[in-house]
């Protein structure tokens, strides 16, 4: 198939979609007075809904990719133990999909609503919370590496980090109230200032990246090269 269909039309679609959103943002006021503003608003909102809808199709890629990887692993695994983990993953995934299709509140018919809630409450939520919580142990080793005072700037990170961890403890609250005042001051002024600088810099970078994507310079999202 010609490069027109494979590459140029998708790039044109990206540009047109971006243009509609840009026009909607800059030319449609909160109080619409002109018919063309209302049309522009409709196109902008519809396009945003379409993008949200398509983003949900993209989630399916995750399921397909996991299935492909684990199907391959089942076929190639030499021991039954390795096969078992992948088979178990399929069982859990299938259980969530089946119960979700008949229990998720947004579905047409929800006879399994209670089972869906149960699965969420006793399987997904504990796993989610514990995985995040167990990162604290990795952070302990991260702390050791990050808080080594090799330079003066590293020492600043170490001192502020240590005091910020300790300032909520009863020991510091009782015997070193000045630490609490200092950390509060750091959180309110220098940290906010530095983060605002980072935020504005990142936003300017994101804006440039957006413009590069719209004009077709950035094409990584199209996948493999033809």
């Amino acid at each position: 198939m010609s490069v027109l269909y494979r590459r140029h039309i998708p790039l044109a679609i990206t540009f047109i979609c971006g243009l509609i959103i840009l026009l909607q943002f800059f030319f449609v006021p909160a109080n619409i007075t002109e018919p063309w503003q209302s049309s522009l608003q409709y196109y902008g909102v519809t396009l945003t809904n379409w993008a949200n809808l398509l983003a949900n199709f993209i989630i399916g890629f995750g399921v397909v990719n996991i299935s492909l990887i684990h199907a391959r692993r089942i076929m190639r695994a030499k021991s039954w133990v390795d096969k078992f983990y992948s088979i178990w993953l399929f069982i859990v995934m299938a259980a969530f999909i089946v119960v979700g299709l008949f229990g998720y509140p947004r579905m047409w018919w929800t006879p399994l609503a209670a089972n869906w809630d149960w699965l969420q409450l006793y399987v997904l939520t504990p796993l989610d919370a514990t995985v995040y919580a167990s990162l604290v142990f990795y952070m302990a080793s991260g702390c050791y590496r990050a808080f080594r005072a090799r330079t003066l700037e590293g020492a600043a990170l170490l001192v502020v980090g240590f005091l910020s961890i300790m300032y909520k403890t009863p020991l510091f609250q009782a015997y070193a109230p000045w630490v609490i005042k200092t950390i509060d001051w750091i959180a309110k002024y220098p940290a906010v200032g530095a983060y605002r600088g980072i935020q504005v810099s990142a936003a300017l970078g994101a804006i440039l990246l957006g413009i590069r994507t719209l004009i077709g310079v950035e094409t990584g999202y199209l996948g493999r090269r033809d």
Partner: peptide
């Protein structure tokens, strides 16, 4: 490893069901 595979399967299945729900709701 068992819990890890349970988590990946559960998260993938959950996201898929929610995505189908959203496709229904928004499309």
């Amino acid at each position: 490893k068992f819990a890890e595979h349970t988590y990946v399967g559960a998260a993938a299945g959950y996201s898929f069901a929610v995505a189908i729900g959203n496709i229904r709701g928004y499309g």
